[in-house]
Simulated assay, not measured.
Amino acid sequence: MTDKNSTAPAIAVEGLWQVFGEHADKALRAAREAATDPEDFQAIAEDLKGRGLIPAVRAADFEVKNGELFVIMGLSGSGKSTLIRCISRLIEPTAGAVRIDGEDILQANEKRLIELRRHKLGMVFQHFGLFPHMTVADNVGFPLKMQGAGKAERRKRAFEVLELVGLQGREDAYPRNLSGGQRQRVGIARSLAVNPDIWFLDEPFSALDPLIRRQLQDEFLNIQATLKKSIVFITHDIQEALKLADRIAIMRDGEVVQIGTPEDIVLRPVDDYVREFTRDVAKGHHACVESVMLDQVPENMPDDPKLRVGMTLSTALEKCMDLYDPVPVWDADGKMVGAVNPAELAAALHVDDSAGPDCV
């Protein structure tokens, strides 16, 4: 099992390329050799396109820390789903390395890869992939059956993880008797049955209705707070990414263009592409007081709303406004028609999400 206190990354992706087409590995080597600058990945990609190939992932480099929830996002066709399939070796990358706790799994033989998938890696995808003829408990226990576990052990573990995802009492139901959100919970429980160190999730909630999706996001955060898995999570939804992630990687045309915390992505986008993702994001819900704090403390500050360094800007504004008395509200004819408390204005702008009042 992974040492959660280790400083070594759970996953290290190094110079990863995925090129689709015949003799892609030879073409990539030729394109690299022909490049004036071996670090000009855009030029190498254009060379590959000229050879009739598709460079779907281009020289990806990043690390996922132990216990980190690392979100990869981008527009459709940006390469995010291809990237997670390369990392999990559902497809074979053209070049590069993927190190799981220091082991380059791209060099692993088939037997070792099966062992990793059965004991160390968990996977959840958008489509549930449940066996319709099996009960919920049997679906969840299926990975343990592949490990050779007995029926009693499988059923005991299935009950444990089904309780974790809120499906206790539905163990003997069949997938056809469940809602879409419940079926996705079964998929999550099945991936947790073997207690994997590393969890891959490819847009697991995108097919669900918005309300169910938000509920599952909240439950997912609760599960992660309990289990502290190392997670790679794929999404195209910036709000989902900001809500869930410890760090976010933004992809464009197969390249990772920025990696940062939710606050980094919202307040410090590297270019217009990233900026467009966050254009409609309420920045006060993802930035903290520290990001706008003065270095020098002025004298004679009469008011103290007890702000904290890690408090979000929206929560801080609400606390500041609570210091002020109600103010008048006028109609179009200049008649005073009522009053409003500034704290109520600030509260109306505040989103009460699962991240709580502090920055992540």
Rank of each mutant, 00 (worst) to 15 (best):
A24R: 05
A24V: 04
A24K: 03
D25C: 00
K26N: 09
K26C: 00
A27C: 09
A27R: 11
A27W: 12
A27I: 07
A27G: 07
L28I: 10
L28K: 04
L28Q: 04
L28Y: 06
L28A: 06
R29V: 13
R29Q: 15
R29H: 10
A30Y: 09
A31V: 07
A31F: 11
A31D: 03
R32G: 14
R32C: 04
E33K: 15
A34F: 02
A35D: 04
A35G: 05
A35L: 10
T36D: 12
E39A: 13
E39Q: 14
E39I: 00
E39H: 13
D40K: 10
D40W: 11
D40P: 06
D40V: 10
F41M: 05
F41D: 14
Q42K: 14
Q42M: 07
A43D: 11
A43Q: 14
I44W: 07
I44M: 12
I44F: 08
I44C: 08
A45G: 15
A45T: 05
E46A: 12
E46K: 13
L48F: 12
L48S: 07
K49C: 05
R51L: 07
R51H: 11
G52R: 06
G52F: 10
G52W: 05
L53C: 09
L53V: 09
L53H: 08
I54R: 12
I54Q: 12
I54W: 10
V57E: 02
R58E: 03
R58L: 01
A59M: 04
A59C: 10
A59Q: 13
A59S: 15
A60P: 08
A60K: 03
D61T: 14
F62E: 02
F62A: 02
E63G: 00
E63A: 08
K65W: 02
N66W: 00
N66G: 06
G67Y: 03
G67C: 01
G67A: 02
G67F: 01
E68Q: 09
E68M: 02
F70G: 01
V71M: 06
V71E: 06
I72Y: 02
I72W: 02
I72L: 15
M73R: 07
M73I: 10
M73D: 01
G74D: 02
G74L: 12
G74P: 11
G74K: 09
L75I: 08
L75T: 07
S76I: 05
S76L: 06
S76T: 14
S76H: 08
